[in-house]
Computed example of a mutant assay.
Amino acid sequence: MSNNTLRVTWFVPPAIAVAASWKEPPGFHLESSRTQSSDEQYQLLCDGVVDAAVTSIDNVLHWNQRQGPEDFVVVAQMETTTPLHLIGSSTLSAPADLVGANILVDAPQNGFVIALRALLQQAGLGTGDYRLTPVGGVRERFSALIEGQGDATLLGPPFDTMAVQRGLKHIATIQDVFAGFPGQGLVVRRSVSHGNEALKTWIRMLQASLATVPGDTEKLKMALDSLDLPSEAVTALVNTFPSTLIPSRDGIELLIGQRALLGLSGANVTYEQIVDCSFLQSFRRPI
């Protein structure tokens, strides 16, 4: 594999990656693949099949507790937040109604499900009051919910709107309960990434796009439209375009606090332990 090729896995192409592609330097190649689950992302990173993953930052808190490399870090935050809506059967009206429900998730112990579990706990539901069934990423969860394989799940645009259009019901929004909920991060393995020149090039491209997009929002919308994304998804991706790549300290501490609330491993981790801003700092120009 060429030193100028970067292999990245994600659920949906982040808007900042689309904008960064407009000024791709000669010889650089981004090899992207859509993942079906965070567990798949974990294994691909462990096996060295990919160099980086765009994923829930909470995954890092859990992945470093698994028996494995334990060297996962967030090197950039790819969006301000990830819009997440709890969608379920038309008979459900509030989180407290999910007693006895079968909730479809990506993974039961990491990712966006932790925010959902924290939301349900605040509504008075313990872990024994509902069942978590792993079915995969957002596309897979949407399909499984429509097919009646579960009672509720977390969905983002456009799948939340599409589900409601099919007779399902909006129950709650994560951001209404956790206002500082952070967007997805760019996750790598610390031990093998600092010599990755393609990764450094891509982060430099992402950094440069922060100055480009405020004046090119319409171009970004057109580029996202060309990916055959529904209008709701395009709007959400544009609205959550970051103003900085520095991972939010408040956001990550919120995730750590959710794990503490639920008594889960990873609650004793600090921001400094899972965030590596050295890639970003190397690109800062002196004032």
Rank of each mutant, 00 (worst) to 15 (best):
Q36M: 04
V135G: 07
M205Q: 14
A15N: 14
E197I: 03
L154E: 06
A107M: 05
L206D: 08
L44F: 04
V138Y: 10
K219Q: 13
S33F: 08
S37V: 08
A208Y: 06
A211R: 10
D228V: 11
I256F: 05
I256V: 14
R166T: 02
R166N: 07
T217S: 09
R190I: 02
E31W: 10
E147L: 13
E40G: 12
T201Q: 15
P230I: 12
L255G: 01
A76T: 12
I246V: 13
N59I: 07
P182L: 15
D228N: 14
T240D: 15
V105E: 07
V50C: 07
D151A: 06
L186H: 01
V177G: 02
W202H: 11
L254Q: 15
G128L: 07
R7Y: 09
A19V: 11
H194P: 06
T173Y: 02
T235G: 02
L145N: 15
A163F: 03
S89Q: 14
A53S: 15
L168M: 08
F11Y: 11
D250I: 10
N3H: 02
L210F: 04
A96C: 13
I87T: 03
F11W: 11
R66M: 09
T217A: 11
L206A: 06
I114M: 14
L84P: 05
V75I: 15
V74W: 00
